[in-house]
Design a protein around this nucleic acid. Sequence first.
DNA 1: CTGTTAGCGCTTTCAT
DNA 2: ATGAAAGCGCTAACAG
Lengths: 343, 343
Amino acid sequence: MKKMTIYQMAKKAGVSIATISRAMNPNTRHKVSPPTRAKIDQLIEKHGYTPNVAAQNLSRASSRAIGVLVPQQEGLFTNDFYARILSGVSDALIGSGYQFKLVMLPVDGKNWEQHNFKFGEGVDGLVVAHWPYFFSNKSFVKKIKIPVAIINDWDKGLTCHRVSCDNENGGSLVAEYLLNRGHKNIAVLSGPKWSTDSHSRLQGFKDVLKKKRVKFDAAQVISANYKEDEATQKVKLFLTSKKKTSAIFCLNDAMAIGAIRGIQELGLSCPKQVSVIGFDDAVSAQWHSPKLTTVHHPIYEMAKGATQILLSDLNRKNKVKKRHYVEQVFPVRLVERQSVAKL
Amino acid sequence: MKKMTIYQMAKKAGVSIATISRAMNPNTRHKVSPPTRAKIDQLIEKHGYTPNVAAQNLSRASSRAIGVLVPQQEGLFTNDFYARILSGVSDALIGSGYQFKLVMLPVDGKNWEQHNFKFGEGVDGLVVAHWPYFFSNKSFVKKIKIPVAIINDWDKGLTCHRVSCDNENGGSLVAEYLLNRGHKNIAVLSGPKWSTDSHSRLQGFKDVLKKKRVKFDAAQVISANYKEDEATQKVKLFLTSKKKTSAIFCLNDAMAIGAIRGIQELGLSCPKQVSVIGFDDAVSAQWHSPKLTTVHHPIYEMAKGATQILLSDLNRKNKVKKRHYVEQVFPVRLVERQSVAKL
DNA sequence: CTGTTAGCGCTTTCAT
DNA sequence: ATGAAAGCGCTAACAG
C-alpha cells in the first residue's frame, strides 16, 4: 500500500487539492465548510493519508525542525552532559511545533570541509553543542544561513546567539567556600588548556584568593585533562610530594571522582585528610562515596535557553525587525555534599 | 545573504543545473569533467552553496533520515534508559548517511489521532521506543507506510521488525543465583500489570523455582509500579509482617534502590539481613551502597540492532526482494555486585 | 467557501 | 560530458 498524494485524495473527495490542503492545515482549516471538512477527515482516516513532508517543506521554505549539532561519538548520550543537553532542547521544543533533528559531525578534523554543506541539512535553526568542530571552524557561523545558538562561553563577537554559564563565579564560590571552611593549602586540578571554561573557573578562583590575600602560586595547579584516570595518577603523585595540601579543587567532576580515588588509594581519607570539590554536578557525583561537593553546571537550562532563543528568532523572522544576537549567561550554584571537611 | 539556488550557481558557472547537481552528488560526480568539476567546486566554496534539502528529499522521494519515536516528557534523556536508546541509534547511524530525527509524541492518550498524521514526518524509517503510545495504538503499525522497528517484546505477529531481550532467561538467572546462594524465602516486587517485560521476568523466575521444587505462592509477590518511592513503602510494610524473607527480587533497578532504602530505614542491613537483586543495570545501580547486583538489560544493543535492521531494510528496498520482518532477541546477563548475601 | 495555477529547488531520464 | 525538460507533492496567491 503506497502513500497517497493530495491529488488522489482530492479526486476521491471530489474537491480540489487546495481544499484538501486547507482542511489539513490547522491555520486554514476553518476556511473549509464543515460538511466538506467532515468528508475529507473521513477519507483521510480511511486511507491513512499523511502529507508528504518534503513537499510541504519545499513549498513552505521551512522544515519546521531545529537541529542540534553534536560530535559523532560512540555512546555519546551515556555522557551525562549530552543527555542533559538533549533533554533541554527537547523540552524547549514541546508544543513549539518544531521537530528535533540530530546533526552529527565527526570529532576529528578530517573532511570537515566536506561536511560543511551539511549545514543546510533540513533544519531552520541550529543549536551547536560540538566543541571540537567549533574550535576549528568558527567561521562556519558566518557561512551558515540559518540562525545559530551556541552553547558555551567561547568567543564574544560571533554573529550568533550564545548561552553560557557563569564559570568565573563558580570558581569564586569554590574559593570562598573552601576558605570559609578553613582551607589554605589548596591544589587545583586544571582542565585542558583549550578549555575556556576551565580558565574562567580558575580565574574566578584565583581572584578571590588574591582578594583575601591568600597566596597561591603556579606550583599548586596540577595540569590535567578532564579525565578521571589521569586525575587519580596526578593526585597520587602530587600528594606524595606536597604534604600540606588540605583540599583539591577539580575543574570538573570526572577528575574529582578520580582524585578521591587517588586519595583513597594512598590510604588517606577524603574528606578527613584531603577534601575534594568538583565542578559540573554530574549525576554520578551524588552517588559516589563520599558524595561530591561540587558546583552545579546549568547545562540543561542552557540547552533549553538556547533552543528558546532560536525559536523566538525563528518566529520573529517573518516580521520586519532587524536581527540581533542575544547572549544569555546562566548562574551556577554550589552544591554542598560530603567531600569537603571543615578544618 | 540569502541561500543560493542551483539555478544561480549554474548561471555563475556557465553550465546547466544538471551539471551542478551531478558535481554535488558523490554517485554522479565522476560524470562531470575534471575542469568543470573544479570550477564548480570553487564556486560552491566561494558562495557557500548548499543544496536545499527539502527539494532533494522531494525529488528523491526520501529524507535520508530515520526517526525515533519517544514519549514527550520533561527531562526524558536524563532517564538512563532513553539515553542508552539514543546512543544505540546514533551509533548505528554513524557512517550510514542517514540523519537522526526525534519524533516526540505526548504520553497521555489525548489527541493521539491528531498526531497520527505525523507519522509521515519526513523519515524513511522509524524506531519505536514509546511504550504508552504503542499500547493504545498497535494498529498504527499497519497504517504507517514506512518500515518500523519496535524496541521490546510486546506482541508477536506485528507487521514490523522487533527487537527484544530475553527477559524470561533474566528471571531464571535471578532464581538460580538466589537459590545457589541459599535463599529460599524470596519476595518479588513486581512491575505494573501492563508490563510484559515484568511478566516474562517473573515467569522465568517462577519456572526455575518450580523446577527446583521450591514453593512459591502469590503472597510473596508484592505488586508495585516500577517506582522507587513506592518500593520503599511496600517493602517496609511487607518486611514488618513477613519476617522470613531473606531476599527480594525487584523487577527493575529503580525499585531495587527503593527497596534497599526501605530495608535500611527499618534498621536492617542489606545484604546481611535482606538481600536485594534488581533488573536493568541502570548506571546508578553501580554506585549505590551496597552496589546493586542486577541483570543487565541490553537496551543499548537493542536500539542499535533495531536501527541496523531498519537500515538494511531501507537499503534492500530498491531490490525486488519481498519484505520480511526480522525479530531479534538479545541475551541478558547477571551482574554480580554486593547486594546479595550468601546464606 | 472553493478551484486554478504558479512556483518551491532539486534529481533524473532522454537526447545530443 | 552536458543540457532540456518533466516531474516530485504541496502551499499560497489570486480569482471567482
